Amino acid sequence: MDTEKIFQLIDRVLPFEACLYHQILPLSIEGNTLHLGMVMLDDVAALDYARRMVGYQNYLLAPQSLSSESHHTILTTYLNYSQNRPTPPKPPKPPEPPKKPDLHSKETLVVESPDELEWEECHKPAARSLQNTIPDPHHALPALAISTRYSEEPIALLSQLPPSRLIQELLGRVLGNGIGRLFFDRQEKHGRILWSQNGVLQSVIEGVALSKFQALLDELKQLTHLPLTPVTEVQQVEIERSYQRDRVLLRLRITPSANGEQATLQVLRGAALKFYQKQQLTTLSRDALSIAQKLRQKMDELHNHTQTATPLTVDQLQPDMVPALNQVLQIVEQQLTELKQIRDSYNKEN
C-alpha cells in the first residue's frame, strides 16, 4: 500500500475521524473508482457513510478487506505524520476598516461527523433554539452530572488520575458545542485516548495502563447502561441527557479487537445535535412510509385472495387476524394524529 497516497486521500476525501470511527481507509483511486479498505466488509453503516461522502465528489466505491492491524498501523503513522508536518505560514492580511456590529448576522459552523452529519450547518450563537433547551420540567431529560477540577490543565497531564475522576475530566472537554469525540484505542501493552472537537484532533493521552483503560470503558458502559461483560461483537447505544440546560446526545460504540475492547464516544450538542436529529427524522419518515406502502400492498393481496377463495379456505384464516390488524391500525392512527398535532404546533411557533 502506498501510504503517501493514502495520507493524501485522508486529507482530501475521507477524514481521519471517519476512518478511525468506521474502521475504513481510502487506499487508492483509479479513474472515478475509490478503493476502500474495510476492517468489517459487512458494516452497512460504514459503507453507507463512505458511499455518501465520496458521492459528493463523483466517485464510485470498490470495497475490499483490510486487516485490523494494517488499519491501526496506517492511522497511527498518519497521526504522527499530521502532528509533525510543518504548518504553512499564513499570508499577512491587510488591515480592515472597523465595522459596526451586525446584531442580525449569522455564523456558519463547519462540523465533521463520521456518521450521518453533513459538512456544513447553520448555528446561531446568540439565541438558542427551543428544540435545544429544556424549559419544561414535565419533559425534562435526566441531568448529566459532570464535575471537572482540572479544566485548565493539558489533557495529557491527567493520566495519573483515577478512572472515575479521569472520565469526568474527559467528558467535561468533549461536551463543548458541536461534535466532541473520545477514541479509546487499545494496543497490545497499553492504551491511548484521542480527543477531537468538530473533527479536529485536540490532544492524546499515551501509555494508559490496560487496567485503567478497561476501567474507563466500564465507566462509559455504566453511564450508558451497558453490561460490563466484554463484548464479542460491535455494540452501539445512544442516550440523551440534559447538560447546562442543553440537550446532549451521547453515542457509544464498543468494538472488540485482537487486543480486547476499544470504544468511541461521540457527543452531539447545539446545532450539530439539531442537524443530526433532523436527519434521523428524515430517515425514520422514509422508512415508515416504505413500511406503510408494503402493508397496503399485502392488504390488497389478502383482500384479492379472500375474494377468489372458497368459503372453506376463508374460514381457515386465523380467527384473531382481523382484530389484531384493526388494533394495529388504530394505534397507528392515534400516532398519526399526535404527529400532526406536533407538526402544527411547531409550524405555529416558527
Rank of each mutant, 00 (worst) to 15 (best):
M299E: 10
K106L: 13
G180Y: 08
V267Y: 00
H104A: 06
E118D: 15
Y59E: 02
L47M: 10
Y56D: 14
S159T: 11
K212M: 09
I179Q: 08
P323L: 00
Q8F: 04
L265G: 07
I24E: 05
S113A: 12
R85I: 04
M38I: 13
K90D: 04
H138Y: 08
P142V: 11
P92T: 07
A50C: 12
R247A: 04
D2C: 03
P91H: 08
E349I: 05
K90I: 02
R247Y: 01
G31D: 05
P125I: 05
G260A: 11
P92D: 07
L339R: 09
T73I: 08
A272R: 02
V237N: 03
P86A: 09
V204P: 01
V39S: 07
T73G: 03
Q83W: 05
R296A: 12
I205G: 00
K278L: 10
T3V: 07
L75D: 01
M38L: 15
Q293M: 13
Q168I: 02
S211Y: 14
F7K: 07
G260I: 09
A309E: 03
L103F: 10
Y150E: 04
L161Y: 04
L228H: 10
T133V: 15
L144D: 06
Q244W: 00
D2I: 02
R186N: 07
A127P: 00
Y56W: 14
R192Y: 06
S159H: 07
L47K: 06
P114T: 06
V314I: 07
H35T: 03
E120Q: 15
A292Q: 14
L158P: 01
E4D: 15
L103C: 03
N304T: 09
Y346N: 02
A145C: 13
Y150A: 06
G55Y: 07
G207S: 14
R245H: 11
L175G: 02
L317P: 00
T108I: 15
K274F: 02
V111W: 05
L217P: 03
S67R: 04
S290W: 02
M53A: 12
K106W: 11
E219W: 15
P227I: 00
E30H: 14
R149F: 12
E17K: 04
V314R: 11
I6N: 01
T76D: 08
H72F: 02
H190G: 01
K99P: 00
E17N: 02
R269A: 08
Y21H: 11
N304G: 03
S285L: 15
I10Y: 01
P230I: 09
L66M: 10
N132S: 13
G176Y: 07
H71Q: 01
L75Q: 06
L157R: 08
Q197F: 09
Q131S: 07
L25T: 04
N198T: 06
H123C: 13
S211A: 15
D344G: 04
Q262A: 09
Q57Y: 09
A126C: 00
T310N: 13
L295I: 03
G37A: 07
L36I: 06
N177M: 01
L171F: 09
